[in-house]
């Protein structure tokens, strides 16, 4: 029994009335994304993302296995997004057939795996017999809405941060060098998809929404848990910095005008750019922290002093 979270009538009325008057409970504007905090652990590919109270942890790992028979030149890549009751009692352990959980898993899958964000051909070691299997384990620690957005950032930041052990191939023989012997190598990332979720509210009655042309529906970005519980419709747009739409999912819900949906995509692009830059920035900072002496060793430094 997954306990459903319930929200009281007075609280839901308060929240909706506030939205009608252009206010959100946490004081954000309608199109403001929560501040994303990205923290890396000691190991490569260990990332914690915090967005407001939402907290997601992602751990990337890899091992050598046999590739699929029908795809001998490709490595394996798997994303696991299993929920546990830690994120809230509404999630049941080991049961991931809940509608929302299926949608989360599918959207992450489409955004990251199907869009080819990770170069899986680069994971091939010996065609047909050996390849890398990369695994991303996403753990939801605290739920305050925006799981899709947060886990997508977590997986991408994790993949960018991860290093796999260096290998040497002699014919069929593969030697894996421990991390302390040889500098590990990063994964091939082809693009960085970022998910942005929009929530729709209908301030008027259903008929006005379907027949009318006022288009007065309220659109907010990055809803919190309470807003998620009360919303009438949801749209998740996944974009990358190359102005490509990677995935769009508006699985039913409140019918929305096509032009306002386009407007959402455009807004999402600005956020995508911002978050991608942020990921690059924290990655650079982490790299510096890990390798304090890199500056001393580079030839650039030598030239500066002379």
């Amino acid at each position: 029994m997954a306990k459903e979270i319930e929200i009281s009538n007075s609280e839901s009325k308060f929240l909706l009335e506030a939205l009608r008057q252009n206010y959100r409970l946490d004081g954000r504007s309608f199109s403001q994304f929560r501040d994303v905090k990205i923290a890396f652990g000691d190991e490569y590919g260990d990332v914690t993302i915090e967005m407001g109270k939402t907290k997601v942890h992602c751990r990337i790992s890899c091992q050598i296995t046999q590739p699929y028979e029908d795809r001998p030149f490709e490595g394996l890549f798997l994303i696991s997004t299993e929920n546990s009751p830690m994120a809230g009692p509404q999630f049941e352990n080991g049961n991931n057939t809940n509608e929302d959980e299926v949608l989360i898993a599918r959207i992450i899958e489409k955004a990251v795996r199907r869009s080819g964000a990770l170069d899986i051909e680069g994971l091939c070691i010996v065609a047909g017999s050996k390849c890398w299997a990369v695994r991303a384990d996403v753990h939801f620690l605290n739920c305050d809405g925006g799981f899709i957005d947060a886990s997508c950032i977590a997986v991408m930041a994790g993949l960018l941060h991860f290093r796999k052990p260096d290998i040497t191939v002699h014919g069929e023989q593969v030697i894996m060098h421990p991390v302390d012997e040889r500098e590990p190598v990063p994964l091939g990332i082809l693009h960085v998809p970022i998910c942005v979720t929009f929530s729709f509210f209908n301030p008027m009655d259903t008929e006005e929404n379907i027949k009318g042309d006022t288009n007065a529906e309220i659109t907010i970005i990055d809803a919190t848990l309470k807003e998620e519980l009360l919303r009438d419709g949801v749209l998740t747009v996944t974009l990358n910095k190359n102005r490509e739409v990677v995935q769009v999912s508006k699985a039913g819900g409140l019918p929305m005008d096509a032009l306002s949906l386009m407007e959402c995509c455009r807004k999402a692009y600005a956020i995508t750019e911002e978050i991608t830059d942020k990921i690059t920035y924290v990655l650079k900072k982490d790299e510096k922290r890990r390798n304090k002496f890199a500056d001393l060793l580079t030839s650039e430094n030598a030239r500066e002093t002379s």
């Binding site: 869009s115 739409v245 096509a258 949906l261 995509c265």
Partner: peptide, 27 residues
């Protein structure tokens, strides 16, 4: 998934890459 003769979309799914600037014509 379009509602009646309106321009309102009830369902919108994109599963592969499409340039953002082409979306409008496609829609």
């Amino acid at each position: 998934g379009v509602v009646g003769k309106s321009e309102k979309l009830s369902l919108l799914l994109v599963e592969d890459k499409i340039p953002l600037d082409r979306m409008e014509t496609v829609l």
